[in-house]
């Protein structure tokens, strides 16, 4: 039997193990954005990915269209029913929006936590390794995308931007297992109830909303939206509906299981929301330093 490890090989093996540990340690740190060499690699790889996945996406959506063709009649009926309601709704929205703008002007508070500017993006890759629920989209820093921005589809919130490079960004879905993945949310009802979307129940395919006060009455089917308080997500993005309420382990707060309104699977087109008002604090240069004199305390 030949010797499995010669000296040289052993050194290479040990050297790479040290490198492995160092690199993993470096990459699992809680860091704001990736470093420039990573950005460069992502842009180059993303360029190739774009070339490969755009035609593939076209072919895929063509097959989807063909299979959808069979349900056209039923869909048409449904849409017609919706359309009648829509006209009324639209005029209501226009009126309310105008009202809102006028009232804001009166209050001299023109920006709101709910304002955002959507950036359309196409999903070019989903992590083939399928561990971390990451997708890559074809918009990056050059389009004004920054880490922690909210990502959604037409039906609701799906995740947040994890890292960006010049022309691509990586999005972490809400279904990912990551303890840093928290979203401040409201259950809408008579009085809004605040909580945190935190974690994903893999078996039931539901999001978990924790830290709901134990005395609050939550009903099945109530809508959950973002609260805009986390500092990054705009207010009012739909997350899902409440399906079940359980007391948490200490009985001090409650946990609701929320059925996400957007599907986390087979995403093709998403929107990244650039929030216009990022915080309640004034801009850095507008802030005045407050001096507190110590008077013989």
């Amino acid at each position: 039997m030949p010797q499995f490890f010669t000296n040289k090989r052993l050194i290479i093996l040990l050297g790479s193990i040290i490198l492995l540990v160092a690199m993993i340690g470096f990459s699992i740190r809680d860091r704001g954005n990736i470093t420039w060499p990573e950005k460069f690699v992502k842009d180059v790889t993303g360029f190739g990915q774009n070339i490969v996945s755009k035609p593939a996406g076209v072919v895929e959506s063509f097959w989807d269209d063909v299979s959808r063709l069979r349900h056209t009649y039923e869909e048409n009926e449904k849409l017609r029913a919706h359309l009648e309601e829509l006209a009324q709704l639209e005029s209501d929205v226009a009126r309310l929006e105008k009202d809102n703008a006028e009232l804001r002007k009166v209050l001299e508070k023109e920006k709101s936590l709910a304002d955002y500017e959507p950036v359309q993006a196409t999903v070019i890759a989903r992590n083939p390794d399928r561990w971390y629920e990451l997708i890559t989209i074809d918009q990056g820093e050059s389009n004004g995308i920054e880490p922690d921005m909210a990502v959604m589809t037409a039906s609701g919130l799906v995740g947040k931007v994890k890292s960006t490079s010049k022309f691509t960004s990586t999005v972490q879905l809400l279904s990912a297992h990551d303890t840093n993945n928290r979203v401040s949310a409201i259950i809408q009802g008579g009085t809004p109830i605040y909580g945190l979307i935190e974690g994903y129940n893999e078996e039931k395919k539901m999001l978990q909303m924790t830290k709901i006060p134990s005395d609050s009455k939550v009903k099945k089917g109530q809508t959950v939206t973002t609260s805009g308080l986390g500092g990054v997500f705009p207010k009012g993005l739909v997350i899902g509906t409440v399906t079940e309420l359980v007391p948490d382990e200490f009985g001090l707060t409650q946990t609701a299981l929320v059925e996400p309104s957007a599907s986390f699977y087979d995403l093709e087109h998403v929107m990244v929301s650039k929030r216009e008002m990022t915080g309640v604090l004034p801009e850095e240069e507008d802030r005045q330093q407050v001096l507190i004199e110590e008077e013989g305390l």
Binding site: L20, M23, I24, F26, V41, G46, S163
Partner: peptide, 17 residues
């Protein structure tokens, strides 16, 4: 492996090694 780590998973070093 290095490209895979950077572009898809973000956990540097796994596939690389």
């Amino acid at each position: 492996g290095f490209l895979f780590d950077m572009f898809y998973t973000g956990l540097l070093g796994a596939y690389f090694f």
